[in-house]
């Protein structure tokens, strides 16, 4: 029988107050946290601050062209949101391939970000959407662009007493995708993933943003490839050059899931496929 110590706040202020104490840790869906809790914390288990009761943090809100997600929005809610399907297709695609039904029903966007894994599937889409994170604590609020949030695998700028309270971004340009390769077709962690957001105007590609997952200590953007593609017509030559460029921007390692050379090469393959409109293979 596994027993944790928990605190169950019902308002955000109460939660932030609690988080300001010693040896406490917030829990949202628990799908990452409870898996490694014992291994990481051993005998000195922190008290868990259960966020479920904070109703406003579960909401998806739209104001004009700006969308903001509460940190407790689940992968399933993202997957099934008609609004997001139009406004952030890459985020919806990522949410729908991650984990399993059971995991998606519990895992939250805030948890995926705070966990800080370079293979967290929602993170590359949020990079290309230029998402802003609102971090709150008893001392106040601050805003930070998502690409300034991560420091390394599992390491973020989030202070111990802070909570991600909102994730917001502008509705997408007209095109976007998320593609990944994984060790199996479901219940799998990505070996490599590519997300993009871009517009097509008179046959040329503009406003390109590309982000790569699981090929560096954090999710990264691919600025050189973005710059090269900008204003180009998408033909085979351009795509091959872009694929070559992006391979150089990836800094993968070999681990239990894959090998570095393969990951580097696949970044290019996935970019080409995404821009060609080839869907995720299942």
């Amino acid at each position: 029988m596994t027993k944790y110590k928990t605190i169950n706040p019902t308002t955000l202020d109460e939660a932030l107050e609690t988080l300001n104490g010693c040896n406490v840790m917030p829990i949202a869906g628990g799908t990452d946290l409870l898996v490694k809790f014992y291994e990481v914390y051993g005998k000195s288990l922190p008290k868990l601050v259960v966020l479920d009761g904070l109703i406003p943090l579960h909401e998806i809100k739209t104001e004009n062209d700006r969308i903001s997600l509460g940190p407790l929005v689940t992968f399933s809610e993202i997957e099934n949101s008609p609004e997001l399907r139009k406004a952030a297709p890459q985020l919806v695609q990522a949410a729908s391939v991650a984990g399993s039904v059971q995991i998606r029903n519990r895992a939250t966007i805030g948890g995926n970000i705070a966990n800080g894994s370079p293979s967290g599937d929602l993170i590359p889409p949020l990079y290309v959407l230029n998402a802003e994170l609102e971090l709150s604590s008893v001392n106040g609020r601050r805003s930070i662009p998502i690409d300034k949030f991560f420091k390394g695998p599992g390491i973020t700028v989030l202070e111990k007493n802070e909570l991600i309270t909102s994730i917001s971004f502008d509705k997408t340009f007209e095109n976007g995708f998320f593609l990944r390769l994984a060790t199996r077709k479901a219940l799998a962690i990505s070996k490599v993933s590519v997300a993009a957001n871009y517009s097509m105007q008179n046959g040329t590609i503009t406003n390109v943003r590309i982000a790569l997952g699981a090929v560096a200590p954090t999710v990264i953007r691919a600025p050189r490839t973005e710059e090269y593609l900008s204003g180009k017509e998408l033909n085979d030559n351009v795509l091959s050059t872009a694929a070559k460029l992006i391979k150089e921007e990836a800094k993968p390692i070999s681990d239990i899931r894959s090998i570095a050379d393969y990951r580097r090469e696949m970044v290019g393959v996935l970019l080409k496929r995404g821009l060609n409109g080839i869907p995720q293979s299942e």
Binding site: Y4, T6, N8, I27, G29, G30, T31, L34, V35, L48, V50, D52, S76, V101, Q102, I103, N105, R106
Partner: peptide, 11 residues
């Protein structure tokens, strides 16, 4: 909705 009961706290 299906969830894993090993990853949910009673509260």
């Amino acid at each position: 909705k299906p969830v894993c009961s090993c990853l949910i706290l009673a509260s």
